[in-house]
């Protein structure tokens, strides 16, 4: 049971990495296309949106990591 759970978590994490990589690629495409069309302000907004979407995706994992670090050093 625990092994299956661990496996699932592993594949999910890998999926998340791919997803974030895809968002990064698309964000860069958005940025280039919008900049070429002379809409610098929109290209900035698109980049910002990409970064924040990626951040929302990983914020749970970041919290997990922080709490683990805390527990390692007996801070919690």
């Amino acid at each position: 049971m625990t092994i299956i759970g661990r496996e699932m978590k592993k594949t999910m994490n890998i999926e998340l990495i791919f997803q974030i990589a895809g968002i990064g690629i698309l964000t860069s495409i958005f940025h280039t296309v919008l900049k070429q069309a002379g809409k610098e302000e929109y290209s900035f907004i698109a980049t910002l949106a990409g970064v924040s979407i990626a951040l929302i995706m990983v914020v749970q994992l970041l919290a997990e990591l922080l709490s683990k670090v805390k527990s390692v050093f007996f801070l919690s």
Partner: peptide, 23 residues
Amino acid sequence: ERYEKMWRYLGFCLGAAIVLVLI
């Protein structure tokens, strides 16, 4: 000249972004 190319790419990119976020 300015916007035709932009919209041609932007539509597909937007679709791909939505799919990536939802999947």
